[in-house]
Design a protein around this nucleic acid. Structure first.
Length: 214
DNA sequence: GAGAAGATCTCCT
DNA sequence: GGAGATCTTCTCA
């Protein structure tokens, strides 16, 4: 039986009020739901990164509040979407109580519903590559800055939730990707052996390798 | 106001 | 494996 929007209950605000690393790990295996008109897109979150506030040099909030990073300082459980490299949007969920910066970057999801729509939005790529990167998933899920600051704790155009029955899984961690500062922190988390994660994975020999798709 | 950097992706070699 | 695309955001003068 395929998954439906109705079977996914939004996560409460209290879920996001905790520490950012705790929330990041807890977001794995949860579901991202995008509703656009009559189209419903659903993906299972398989890879995330935690970003802190003034104590985290890799975070947008490191230098304090700016017009762009305002959502990171706002109410938890909202979307923080920013545009980067002239091409891509990145989707974060905000954490911590208001006034304390924190966000979790959703780096990759496993597409579960609406694959035909995702393939139209990202033509010519395999199912594994539809949403295995922060810029790729926002394109596959039609997410742009018009959804910035959307409340993710309510059913609507974009929310995060969980199904009533959850499968078990193991979590791997690594340094965050694409940053130059704060790399000593192992704040990237992903589901072990999952085929839909991006970039680098840990091999059985404890070596980091760049993923290859054939 | 100018210049540089950037939580990326894709194409080309 | 490397470089270009492309443009927003921030810092500094």
């Amino acid at each position: 039986m395929s998954i439906t929007e109705e079977s996914i209950d939004p996560l409460p605000r209290s879920f996001y009020e905790r520490g950012t690393v705790t929330v990041a790990k807890a977001l794995l295996n949860k579901h991202l739901v995008r509703v656009s008109g009559s189209t419903v897109l659903i993906g299972r979150i398989v890879e995330v990164e935690a970003y802190g506030g003034r104590n985290d040099p890799a975070s947008h909030a490191y230098r304090g509040k700016t017009p762009r990073n305002m959502p990171m300082f706002g109410e938890p459980g909202h979307a923080y979407i920013y545009f980067t490299y002239g091409n891509h949007y990145c989707l974060n969920v905000t954490t911590r109580p208001p006034g304390v910066a924190g966000a979790v970057l959703i780096r990759a999801v496993e597409p579960l519903k609406g694959l035909n729509t995702m393939k139209k939005l990202r033509p010519g790529v395999s199912e594994f590559q539809l949403a295995n990167g922060p810029g790729k998933l926002t394109k596959a899920f039609a997410i742009d800055r018009s959804l910035n600051e959307v409340d993710l704790t309510r059913r609507g155009v974009l929310y995060v939730g969980k199904t009533r029955t959850e499968s078990s899984f193991a979590v791997e961690r690594s340094p965050r990707i694409g940053i130059t500062l704060g790399t000593e922190r192992l704040w990237r988390f992903y589901i072990e052996s999952n085929e839909y994660v991006s970039r680098y994975v840990l091999t059985p020999g404890n070596r980091w390798i760049r993923r290859q798709w054939q």
